[in-house]
């Protein structure tokens, strides 16, 4: 019995060694092939979302896919939990966070490599059609929803804290959809949200209006781990090439809710 056991153990060891060898070979043969994993919020149309065909798509996803193709890299999408995106980036679950992400000073202070901004964003209010709210001044005593982990939430806690204090209640929701559902169901009067997301939702779902008042200017960028400057440069270079060969504008044209006026690279 003991002998059999020893034999099995020895066999297992050999197999392990063999396995090590084979992976090493595979790695050296495929050393030039980089797999680039972009971290996205899977519920952030039109920048990143689950498309009708069941694949992740959106403006950011398509640009990244095109950039990776240009660089000859394998391209993968990883859906992050938005309020833990930077922890997941640090953990190596993805190589960047690129998903309509607002550049915050705190990210730079924490040492993340942040790309050039590529989109000028504003926060707006989404309300139900026929609502008596026509500007942020009408929000006093109203119930407002905002999504957890968005720049809108940070803004209401900081720059716009006075505005937030005038609300009857600020509901911090778990996803954009739950914000919009609360609005549709009448439990809140307005949603504080990024303009393109609001525009995309209002276009798809009748009965909602975006209030034309920019409540906070900010810019979208891509976050990489600290020390990944080379990776950031490579991606920025590829994107610049996509801009110059017209692919970038072509992709942008597919997303009418993303205004070309706000795309920084198209206005240089």
């Amino acid at each position: 019995m003991k002998r059999v056991f020893a034999f099995v153990l020895a066999l297992a060891m050999v197999c392990c060694l063999a396995a090590c060898g084979s992976t090493n070979n595979a790695a050296s043969a495929d050393r030039d092939k980089v797999t680039f994993t972009m971290g996205v919020d899977p519920e952030y149309p039109p920048f990143s979302y689950l498309g009708d065909n069941g694949q992740y798509t959106g403006f950011d996803v398509e640009v990244c896919a095109a950039a990776c193709e240009l660089l000859g890299w394998d391209f993968q999408v990883f859906a992050v939990n938005w309020d833990e995106k930077l922890i997941q980036l640090d953990a190596g679950e993805c190589d960047c966070v690129w998903s309509g992400m607002t550049i915050l000073d705190s990210m730079k202070e924490a040492g993340y490599v942040i790309s050039q901004p590529y989109y000028d964003n504003t926060q707006v209010l989404l309300v139900k059609e026929g609502s008596d709210i026509t500007s942020s001044a009408d929000l006093a005593g109203k119930r407002v929803a905002v999504m957890l982990g968005t720049s809108g939430e940070a803004m209401l806690a900081d720059d716009l804290a006075d505005l937030a204090a005038s609300f009857d209640d600020l509901m911090i929701c778990n996803s954009f959809l739950s914000c919009f559902t609360e609005l549709g169901g009448g439990s809140v009067d307005a949603v504080f949200v990024d303009l393109p997301v609001a525009a995309a939702y209002a276009a798809e779902n009748p009965g909602f209006t975006v209030i034309n008042e920019a409540l906070g200017a900010e810019q979208y960028g891509i976050a990489f781990r600290s020390g990944d400057q080379a990776l950031c440069d490579a991606i920025e270079g590829a994107v610049a090439e996509l801009v110059s060969n017209g692919t970038y504008a072509e992709i942008a044209a597919k997303y009418p809710d993303i205004s070309p006026d706000n795309l920084v690279f198209l206005n240089k």
Binding site: L86, L148, E153, A157, M171, N174, S178, E182
Partner: peptide, 21 residues
């Protein structure tokens, strides 16, 4: 209950964790 944004302890914990990293 955090899934429906009810402000119980875990929901608040998530919010603080998020704003304070």
């Amino acid at each position: 209950a955090f899934t429906v944004s009810y402000q119980e302890m875990f929901t608040i914990g998530k919010q603080i964790a998020n704003s304070q990293t």
